[in-house]
């Protein structure tokens, strides 16, 4: 057991899109410097849950939330700066989405928005972020070339570097490798293992084997409920709930 307090402590979380309840009484906690995989069929609430953690759902009309989510002991729905929250809790999406600008500018974009002006400081940040995202060696000779010229796998690592550049604390990833080939996927998975030393990572994935490979704990969502949340090896070798068993072994049809 990690003696440190949890990074996120979710208590009785309910979420509605209008009349439709998308999350039902979800309670669990996420330890710092761990990778948590969220799995479940489409529409089960796992991506909705992920978006709760950086309050991205605020942008959707008609969303209503009850319960609490403590981030480092503070309620994320309390009186706090949402921009600051999103800086601390970064998100990587399913499809790589580099800005139509150079590699360097892509990475420097976030820090600039947050007020970093010094060219040297920006350059250091760009390099450090690219190194951390295991991309630097591949792009160091073309930092000022368009990011859209990179391969899909490189673009996704660029997006990870872009998130790292604003020096977050948590990385949220929504199916970050579903658009990538196995080699790029393996690179990102290796990277995740490195990154968890510095960050807390929550990843939504439809790839069961990926959840098995990369995560410390896995949560299985179904119809908005967190059915089971346990160490990943228990989920994949000896799940407690019949519904988890059926889902991970491909028996839902």
């Amino acid at each position: 057991m990690d003696p440190r307090p949890p990074k996120f402590d979710v208590r009785h979380l309910d979420l509605w899109y209008g009349q439709t309840q998308a999350l039902k009484d979800v309670s669990f906690s996420i330890d710092p410097n761990t990778i948590t995989a969220l799995i479940g069929p489409s529409g089960c609430g796992k991506s909705t849950f992920l978006r709760v953690l950086d309050r991205m759902n605020d942008l959707i009309e008609g969303v209503r939330v009850e319960g609490s989510v403590l981030y480092d002991g503070e309620d994320i729905f309390g009186d706090r700066d949402v921009i600051e929250l999103r800086k601390r809790v970064g998100m990587v999406f399913q499809k790589p989405n580099p800005f139509p600008m150079s590699i360097w500018d892509n990475i420097a974009y976030g820090p600039r928005v947050h007020g970093v002006k010094d060219k040297k400081a920006l350059s250091d940040l760009v390099e450090r972020s690219l190194v951390q995202a295991a991309l630097f060696d591949e792009v160091k000779d073309r930092l000022h070339k368009p990011a859209l010229g990179l391969s899909g796998g490189q673009q996704q690592r660029l997006c990870i570097a872009r998130v790292l550049a604003v020096e977050p604390d948590v990385l949220l990833m929504d199916e970050p490798t579903s658009a990538l080939d196995p080699i790029s996927t393996a690179k990102i998975e290796t990277l995740l293992d490195e990154l968890k030393r510095r960050y807390t990572i929550v990843i939504v994935t439809h790839n069961m084997q990926q959840a098995g490979r990369v995560s410390d704990r896995t949560g299985f969502f179904l119809h908005g409920e967190l059915v089971e949340y346990a160490p990943t090896r228990d989920i994949f070798f000896n799940p407690r709930d019949e519904r988890t068993e059926n889902y991970i072994s491909g028996r839902f049809g």
């Binding site: 084997q209 098995g212 994949f236 000896n238 799940p239 991970i248 072994s249």
Partner: peptide, 9 residues
Amino acid sequence: QAPVARDLR
């Protein structure tokens, strides 16, 4: 077939 859980056991 990448079996898991009971199938794998």
